[in-house]
Design a protein around this nucleic acid. Structure first.
Length: 792
DNA sequence: GTAGGGTTAG
């Protein structure tokens, strides 16, 4: 066989490899090996085909070997390489090859390939820059050049002058009737139209004029114009255009659906789907992913599930690419609605997974609080991107793992990733969880330096952080200066005031929010109701609860629990009971807990016992119930019953979580006391508390005689009773201060949260180091600062 | 050997 015949033979074989889906790279490799052993040197189109196959099969190494063997002047091979590297996502290599191609060997096509590569990677400015160089060097520009440069302008999207200039050039060069060029020009115009400080309607009508004049409109022309209207919020114009189409262009339908979805018209989007079905228009992965994500975002799980069933029924031989994007959307759907088992089944069965798949399942686990699973997924991930890190950091913070959140944030930076505003929000949230004001402040200044302070989520979380660290003033000044505000911002500030005992101001702020026409959401009502509850604003709480329906919010169990809490704290048990009877569901743990807490304050034994029994059924291992019950008995001085509850707790093997109480003093002095003696480290704190009480006395504070010693393990209680009746552990009720103001007591805060502040404060007052164990970790408090580590 | 529209993770 002569060389030419051999070449044809190889070419035919290679095209078989390409025709298979996916491309059979192993076969291609074998054919390549055969060439080498038989002494055949691939050149021209055979070489390019091989390079193409290797690149498309992600075998960049093989492809690169071939490339390195190509003599420099082979511009065709080089151009293929630029295009394939770029489509593989490796712009750097594409750029390297382009740059090492001597100027004299470049041609228009190689410039086009490189300009396109930049456009594909969203680097519009680099594309324009190269276009300028190309013209300067005297290369001629063709329709490909203009198409890619105009796409670059669409990416930059705010250079209308340049668009008009290129428009003139296109006409001068006689390309004004080429559909692809005109499409790109329309695309550039509609992108510029959505830029700020631009006459949007002028540019849109210029685009529409061009569209109407395109001599041979193709599918792309229609789709670009429809998406153009969608981008510029003119959905009816988009729909008008679509309805005027004579042929079925699926992509245009998809564009319309995604337009509806992005503007929140979910029903209209689903309606389009029904029309596609009845008209027999083909649906593809784009159609399904848009609609599935609409189901996730709109809370329409049923629709999403129906789509899933529809896909399983109608798509008999789905391609891997189809399955990839559709399953990604399905994983998100199921995990959004907390169905992690279903999400995981889909994830595990996926024939092809990408970073989106991994991030979807990761955020699914994070959202439902399955942190262990999330950690496993995170460490199993070979490829991580900014989103991966951000999801994990904010997830850790959200579920109380502040320290791990901060650690991960620092690790992210060490790995050379530049955290985005969401990642910073996660880190600040971690500080809020830890009550770590120092770290929080440092992050705040970094945020300002990097310009992330105008980010909504960052602003909101900064308010929360300052509030949780006890600096309401800073929270308030954040609230006043943050440029973008939503209901979350208001919720955060209302909660900040409520947490610090300013219930009345919290309610006032809520009223202000309504005046500013910000719609309250579920969280707003939770916050407002707690504020009323803590401030004893029964009338107001009752009123606000009644207004929920008017905002289209059905009270959930958590809202009812807040109301029950409010009423029971005020001793209005019969009203609480009738409220519970009016609920559309059976009372669960949060309701009974609120009742028990109220009974504890008012010594309502019968109801208290009933609530406790229910709670024992619902959560047998929950320590809070036992503590509340024994506290109720203690309030009434029934020490034998206290002992009985303690015994019961021991018999049932219920572990008591370390916790502490936070006493808030209105004249800004905060005192924090521990209410647990399980761990020797915590016991040690009591000793320091003695000194604290001593210090308080010196300052003129008089501990009320109602201080009781009921919340301690019996041995320690006996010890305490025998030594000093005021060597207290838990303080209930109200403490009078010499200036006439009073102290309120909050209970059962976890070590890892607000208690950090407590121990910091104590360590400063007593001038000693305090070590507190919390699960497997310990916290060292010294001179008002904290350091943490693993306990074992 | 080059381009062009629609999607999915916080």
């Amino acid at each position: 066989m002569n060389v030419r015949a051999l070449a044809n033979h190889y070419a035919a074989q290679l095209s078989i490899c390409c025709s298979l889906s996916p491309i059979n790279c192993t076969l291609a490799r074998a054919i390549h090996a055969h060439m080498i052993t038989s002494g055949f040197r691939p050149w021209g189109h055979i070489l390019n085909r091989l390079i193409d196959i290797y690149c498309k099969s992600s075998k960049i190494g093989y492809a690169r070997q071939l490339f390195d063997a190509i003599p420099k002047p082979d511009i065709v091979a080089r151009t293929t390489f630029i295009a394939t590297y770029s489509s593989m996502g490796n712009l750097k290599l594409a750029e390297e090859i382009f740059n090492e191609t001597p100027l004299v060997m470049r041609d228009t096509v190689s410039y086009n390939a490189m300009i396109t590569a930049y456009s594909h990677h969203d680097d519009g400015h680099a594309a324009i820059e190269l276009f300028r160089e190309m013209k300067q060097e005297g290369f001629s520009c063709d329709n490909f050049t203009f198409s890619s440069v105009l796409s670059a302008l669409a990416i930059i999207a705010d250079d209308e002058k340049q668009c008009q200039q290129l428009h003139c050039e296109v006409i001068k060069l006689g390309l004004g009737t080429v559909t692809s060029v005109l499409n790109a020009l329309i695309c550039a115009y509609v992108h510029c139209a959505s830029a700020p400080q631009v006459s949007s309607s002028l540019l849109m009508s210029a685009a529409r004029k061009l569209f109407d004049e395109v001599p041979q409109r193709d599918e792309t022309s229609w789709t670009i114009m429809i998406t153009g209207y969608v981008r510029n919020n003119d959905l009816s114009a988009a729909r008008g255009l679509l309805d005027g189409m004579t042929e079925n262009i699926e992509v245009a339908w998809n564009a319309m659906i995604s337009g509806y979805v992005h503007h929140g018209y979910y029903e209209a989007a689903f309606d389009m789907f029904r029309k596609m079905h009845s008209r027999g228009i083909l649906k593809d992965a784009y159609t399904y992913t848009s609609l599935i994500s609409a189901s996730s975002n709109a809370g329409l799980f049923r629709y999403g599930k129906q789509l899933h069933a529809y896909i399983l029924r109608t798509e008999v031989q789905p391609s891997k690419d189809f399955l990839l994007s559709v399953n990604n959307a399905l994983v998100t759907l199921y995990s959004t609605f907390g169905k992690l088992v279903e999400a995981r089944v889909i994830f595990d069965k996926m024939p092809l997974k990408d970073i989106v798949s991994w991030n979807s399942i990761l955020s699914g686990y994070v959202n439902v609080g399955c942190i262990e699973e999330a950690k496993t997924i995170f460490s199993d991930m070979l490829e991580k991107n900014l989103l991966t890190w951000t999801v994990m950091i904010s997830g850790l913070a959200q579920h109380g793992f502040g320290e791990e959140g901060l650690k991960l944030f620092n690790q992210m930076k060490l790995e050379g990733l530049e955290p985005c505003d969401y990642a910073y929000a996660g880190a600040v949230k971690s500080c809020a969880v830890l009550g770590s004001l120092e770290n929080g402040r440092q992050l705040h200044s970094q945020i300002i330096q990097l310009g992330h302070h105008s980010s909504l989520s960052v602003g909101n979380v900064l308010i929360t952080m300052y509030a949780r660290c006890g600096v309401v003033e800073s929270a308030y000044s954040m609230f006043q200066t943050t440029p973008y505000v939503d209901s979350v911002t208001w919720n955060a500030m209302i909660a900040a005031l409520a947490q610090h005992g300013h219930g009345v101001q919290a309610v006032q702020l809520y009223e202000e929010m309504l005046k500013e026409d910000i719609l309250p959401d579920r969280i707003t009502f939770l916050t407002v109701l707690s504020a009323c509850s803590h401030a004893g604003l029964v009338k107001e709480g009752r009123y606000y609860f009644g207004t929920m329906d008017g905002y289209g919010i059905t009270p959930g169990e958590d809202h009812y629990a807040r109301m029950v809490d409010l009423l029971c704290r005020a001793g209005m048990f019969s009203e609480a009971k009738s409220l519970i009877e009016s609920m559309p569901f059976k009372p669960g743990a949060p309701i009974w807990e609120a009742i028990l807490a109220g009974c504890r304050i008012h010594g309502n034994i019968d109801l208290g016992i009933e609530a406790a029994e229910r709670l024992f059924e619902l959560m047998p291992q929950h320590d809070g119930t036992y503590i509340l019950l024994s506290n109720m008995y203690a309030t009434l001085g029934q020490w034998e019953d206290v002992a009985k509850v303690r015994k019961l707790m021991r018999e049932r093997g219920v572990k008591k979580e370390p916790g502490c109480s936070w006493i808030e003093v209105e004249n800004k002095v905060h005192v924090f006391l521990v209410d647990d003696t399980v761990h020797p480290e915590v016991q040690a704190v009591y000793k320091y508390l003695e000194k604290l009480v001593f210090e308080m006395r010196k300052l003129g504070y008089i501990p009320d005689t109602k201080f009781v010693l009921h919340d301690m393990e019996s041995e320690y209680k006996e010890h305490a009773l025998s030594t000093h009746s005021e060597k207290l552990a838990v303080v209930y009720g109200i403490m009078k201060l010499p200036n006439g103001s009073s102290i309120r007591v909050f209970k059962n805060l976890r070590i890892c949260g607000d208690c950090h502040n407590a121990f910091k404060f104590i360590s400063k007052v007593v001038e000693r180091e305090i070590v507190v164990r919390d699960g497997k970790r310990f916290h060292h408090f010294r001179h008002g600062e904290c350091s943490c580590g693993d306990y074992w």
